[in-house]
Amino acid sequence: MFGLIQPCRGRLGATAHELWSAHLCGLCLALRDTAGQPARLATTGDGVVLSLLVAAQRPTATVRRGAGPCPLRSMRTARVVAADDPGITLAASASLAAAAARIHDHARDGDGLAGTRLLRAGATRAAGAVDRAADRTGRRVGFDTAELVESVHRQFALETATRRCPEADGAADGNTERAGALLALIAPTEDAAAAAFRHCAELAGRPENTGTLAEAGRLFGRLTHLLDAVTDRAADGQAGRWNPLTASGTTDAAARSLCLDALTGLRLAVDELTLAPSADAALLRALLVDELAHTVTRTFAGAGGAGGATTARATGTGTAPVEGGGWWRRRRARRQARRRGRRQESWCERCGDCCEACEVCDCGCDC
């Protein structure tokens, strides 16, 4: 799935990964029930974090329901979090709002299908419909998406104001002014994430967690925007699109420093939360601490690489280059597994497809 958090079964373990899948599939079905089949495309791992935040703070277990066969589960049934669960409902609302914001962004930038001349008007109307669906869904659990929509408008205003941006070439690492300018450019994303995280405390009946969750959300939003900017920087430069790193003259090294600081703050915030002793709380810690740290490593390793012909794989003695052909090795491994009569369990079986995304897997799998 898309999103900042893409956990690996090899690192989580079978039990935790099953719980993750229960929340992820529950979010997917909640989006379908809320806004129709196309809305399932808005399913992301980041939305699952909101559902887990609510579940991890409550002493009672989340309600499960049966789900029918799905191609992404190798046509197997599953027990997933119910669509009317408050955490899943909040996650669905935030996911729809994020999807609408991305469609608006593509339409404005002339990027992708939504940005083509023939489809731009239709894409804008579709984004408006998704915004309304997000608002309807959020109101079921007392969440007002107006703050998220306002953040989108603020972000667009900042982008418009900084279209004529300085180049990052020669920028000094650790420059306080540049870091401040970058944080000002991504502040709307931080505020939107803080609003969604903060509401998790209200749904769980944990008012003591409100301030800590707001700070955790702000740091999570910072990581989301920074890592997305690092990933897209080269493509944005070639296409002439706005990028906050280029607009603020921030180097990748400086961005990495900000990400590491955000990771530290997020870990401290998670430690301060009052959570119920449950599997949901353990999974939440694994995602917001371990998996996010792995995502940062993966992102900056990819940004510093040669573009896919050569990848770096973390080993016990350091980082060694691995020539292309990873796709072929995974394909051969799957054929051998089928010959032995072993059925593939899911996308993440033996970490095959996870490693295709991360390229620097250190989970101990043999893919």
Rank of each mutant, 00 (worst) to 15 (best):
V296P: 00
A333Y: 13
L119D: 00
A157I: 09
A16W: 02
L119M: 13
D353S: 13
E177F: 13
E215W: 04
G265L: 06
H199K: 01
R343I: 01
L31D: 12
T250L: 13
L263R: 09
D111M: 03
A100K: 01
H225P: 00
C358Q: 01
C25Q: 06
R256W: 13
V63F: 08
H199F: 03
P59Y: 02
A247E: 02
R120W: 12
W328N: 01
G47H: 05
R163L: 15
R298L: 03
E167G: 15
D84S: 08
A187R: 15
L52T: 02
A14N: 06
G138M: 07
A129D: 11
A286M: 07
R350W: 08
R198I: 00
R330M: 12
W328G: 00
R9S: 11
A91L: 12
G36Q: 05
E150V: 00
T264F: 12
L260M: 08
A309P: 10
T295G: 05
S278K: 03
A193W: 15
G87Y: 03
R330D: 10
A269T: 06
R241K: 10
A100D: 09
A282F: 06
G180P: 08
S248M: 04
A357V: 14
G36A: 08
F300A: 04
A303H: 06
T311C: 00
E291T: 14
R140L: 11
G122T: 02
R342V: 15
D144T: 07
S95I: 09
G364N: 07
N175W: 11
A192H: 05
L31G: 10
T60M: 03
G115A: 14
G205C: 09
F143R: 03
T251A: 11
I103M: 13
G3M: 06
